[in-house]
Amino acid sequence: MPEIQSASGDAQLADESFRTIGKTYVDQPRMTASQVNVYYGDKQAICDVSLGIARNEVIAMIGPSGCGKSTFLRCLNRMNDTIAGCRVSGTIRLDQQDIYDKRLDVVPLRARVGMVFQKPNPFPKSIYDNVAYGPRIHGLARKGVELDEVVETSLRRAGLWTEVKDRLAAPGTGLSGGQQQRLCIARTIAVSPEVILMDEPCSALDPIATARIEELLVELRKNYTIAVVTHSMQQAARISQRTAYFHLGHLIEVGETTRIFTNPQHKLTEDYITGRFG
């Protein structure tokens, strides 16, 4: 479930103080969101958020529950389209192309901007079929050796190959939670996306599995652009280059991760990272 919250009550008083601090746009953007507003029915979940995501960076989105960070993430590959009553305004560009353009087909977009969910959700199919699912529907590889290669590469990149290479025919749902999440990452990688969106990918995992995923993210950054929503500030500090702090649907502050955590400019950011609320 995306976080739904009301911003109506605080909108007036916050007008000035909710203006984003920090450099929102980047020089070499992979994705750029400009003045994005999201509504669920009458409720506004995202207010006027602008944010650039640079190539080969890991950007962390943090903030208290209901701040809109997951909603924003889901806008980036139009997953919000599946939710009834959700409206998005503003523009979001992927490599200069407006992804909310009416002429754009959402299906190839989602292949270019992949998504990993909070709870591991492998299909009730074999490990092999889980990874091969995307390449098959997009016709990325021919059956046989070529597909086998894609599956192996994806599993290797997700750091799961050595653990599952002898049981590719076993059901994906039979793996442990951490393995399932890495399987989901492998599944996403298999369609060669440009951007990977991760919605609290470690919140359902134990610390050891979390550490594996974090190592993996650092590794994946070489090839992909990654946006991670996380509840853990330590995690954001460990894995990301830039951090964006959301509060009640507003993007409060964005900047270099080290700067945000050592020298936050906004009062709300400071309160949040020092643990005064959230």
């Binding site: 590959n77 997953m79 599946t82 299906v107 190839p108 977009l109 989602r110 292949a111 270019r112 992949g114 998504m115 990993v116 969910f117 709870k119 959700n121 492998p122 299909f123 009730p124 199919k125 699912y133 995307g134 529907i137 997009h138 989901c184 599944r187 996403t188 369609v191």
Partner: peptide, 27 residues
């Protein structure tokens, strides 16, 4: 059938009909 499975399939760029045929119906 859990919504998470549909989301996973949509997130990989599958159409609604592909999702139904290959994920929802088998499940």
């Amino acid at each position: 059938v859990p919504q998470a499975l549909r989301d996973a399939s949509f997130g990989l760029g599958a159409t609604r009909s592909e999702t139904i045929r290959q994920v929802v119906l088998p499940a």
